[in-house]
């Protein structure tokens, strides 16, 4: 207990404003938003499958689906891939942020890599593209 207190005094592990924690939570909220957006596309695909009368899992692998259902399926898979990219970005970032302010400050690179934020932006553009294609195909 005493040793812990000494360590905390030497390297402040926590910021009084909880800045890294708030930023990590912000990434988590972003993941949740992305999951909701992509689940809605999956819902549309599932609905179109049901209308074709192949809602059970076995029916999924029977050939003869319409181009419409296959198109929505591609959109759903695309949406999931973009969500996975966002989750990977977020989990790398959350791990870094949880190292604590002391470590982050001495490392000298507390801001995220530009590449990570660019990847996240591009993933959302790809999710938007999947959304537009799904909307045009119709649910």
């Amino acid at each position: 207990m005493g040793a812990d207190g000494m360590g905390a005094a030497a390297i402040p592990a926590r910021d009084p404003g909880l800045q890294p924690e708030r930023t990590a939570l912000s990434w988590r909220r972003t993941i949740m938003s992305a999951v909701i957006a992509s689940l809605l596309i999956w819902r549309g695909w599932a609905l179109s499958l049901t209308r074709e009368g192949s809602a059970d899992v076995a029916g999924l692998f029977v050939p003869g689906h319409s181009a419409h259902v296959i198109g929505l399926g591609v959109c759903a898979v695309m949406a999931s891939l973009t969500t996975i990219v966002l989750v990977v970005c977020a989990s790398i970032r959350i791990r870094t942020l949880h190292a604590g302010v002391g470590v982050l400050e001495t490392a000298g690179h507390i801001a995220p890599p530009a590449l990570m934020l660019r990847t996240a932006s591009i993933a959302i553009v790809a999710l938007a593209a999947a959304t537009v294609v799904a909307l045009v195909l119709g649910f």
Binding site: Q19, P20, S26, T30, S33, A37, E105, A111, L127
Partner: peptide
């Protein structure tokens, strides 16, 4: 670092608006 992280959180808030 406080400004860097605030900037990052603002980016994320806009990203959530987009989502």
């Amino acid at each position: 670092y406080r400004f860097s992280l605030a900037n990052e959180r603002t980016f994320l808030a806009w990203v959530r608006t987009a989502l």
